[in-house]
């Protein structure tokens, strides 16, 4: 099982990625760096979203909700107490909020654990029945979390949101955590847990008949996704320095859904590939929401047009290219299969 050659290869790849991250942070201009940071956060979110949706096959619509939890927890924990007292305009912050303060990494991790805990609480009712209701429960949760943020100003500063969040999250943080997320996901996939998740996706009854506790496996996948989405949310909050309840809308989830469908549901390489391609492409697609001039005729600005295009892309992919770029396999599997087929055809 333990393959020394592969181990060395992986170490080299990881070191090269880290070197690139360091280089980018030190020498790239701020525009390109901000695109890279977006890609990094998209990658964290898409990879973790892919675990529950693609690998375990349980359709959920949660990322925006869990990202919001992570973002709020992290923001509250890293904003210095004196800043909070000035910021909370509607009501005074609750004592625990006012006094809480810690450094960045533990704050981000707590954001992740908070999201994971909520995921566990949602999993209990949802996975007791077949996964069908997960999508609607998570969709609802994304809206509820906003209602809670608005109605509890002593914790969240209500609709005004939090600002002056310390900008700790640079590309070194985001890039490294994205890399860790990818490695963790790959490690899960190539373990008995990943196999069980795929088994549940392929045929839940047969998986049960193999002795797999499908409730446990689905909950595990869901909690893992939630953890990394919470972490991604914490990074996002610190990157943006301002968060409001309206920011974590369903649009975020929808974009991520397109990412993982394009990359191939179930393929982590695919999710990573799509994050890079679309993270860059979305930036460029912003023109759709601006003034459109065609053949010298001004069509005016159409906010929402970008999302119409998104949904058409998603629908066309579902109808005609459901397997996405990578199918449900990893790049390494595809290469291995290709080599094997070539070898066979030589014989």
């Amino acid at each position: 099982m333990f393959d020394f050659k592969r181990f060395i290869r992986n170490i080299v790849l990881i070191l090269a990625t880290l070197a690139f991250i360091y280089y980018a942070q030190k020498s790239m201009d701020s525009y390109n760096l901000s695109i890279l940071m977006n890609i990094g956060i998209f990658a964290i979110l898409a990879l973790s979203y892919n675990l529950i949706n693609g690998v375990a096959g349980q359709f959920s619509l949660e990322p925006n909700g869990f990202v919001a939890i992570g973002a709020y927890f992290t923001a509250i924990l890293i904003i210095p107490p004196e800043t909070k007292l000035d910021m909370f305009a509607l009501v005074d912050p609750a004592p625990i909020v006012a006094s809480a303060h810690m450094s960045f990494l533990p704050a981000v991790l707590i954001g992740g654990f908070a999201a994971m805990l909520v995921a566990m609480l949602l999993a209990l009712p949802v996975f007791r029945v077949r996964g069908d209701y997960l999508a609607i429960v998570t969709l609802g949760f994304g809206f509820i979390i906003r209602i809670f943020a608005i109605n509890n100003p002593e914790y969240t500063n209500g609709a005004m949101g939090l600002n002056d969040i310390p900008e700790y999250a640079n590309f070194i943080w985001i890039g490294t955590i994205a890399l860790i997320t990818f490695i963790v996901m790959i490690h899960i996939i190539y373990s008995k847990y990943g196999r069980s998740m795929k088994a549940v996706r392929d045929d839940e009854d047969a998986a049960t008949a193999m002795g797999i506790n499908t409730f446990k496996i689905k909950t595990l996948a869901f909690m893992t996704s939630a953890f990394f989405e919470g972490v991604g949310g914490g990074l996002l909050a610190s990157m943006l320095t301002t968060i409001t309840p309206d920011q974590f809308s369903f649009l975020l989830t929808f974009q991520l859904l397109i990412f993982i469908v394009l990359g191939g549901l179930g393929s982590m390489s695919g999710a990573l590939f799509a994050s890079i391609l679309l993270g860059w492409g979305l930036e460029k697609l912003r023109i759709l929401d601006e003034n459109i001039t065609l053949f010298g005729h001004d069509f005016g600005a159409h906010p929402g047009l970008r999302m119409v295009v998104f949904s058409i892309i998603l629908l066309l992919m579902m109808l005609y290219a459901r397997r996405g770029v990578f199918g449900d396999r990893e790049l390494t599997d595809i290469i291995r299969d290709y080599k094997r087929k070539k070898l066979e055809s030589k014989k």
Binding site: F59, F250, G304, S311, L314, L315
Partner: peptide, 14 residues
Amino acid sequence: LITAIGISFFLENL
């Protein structure tokens, strides 16, 4: 399910 959510998002934004 993905297609259904796509249709929903499409109608809202259209």
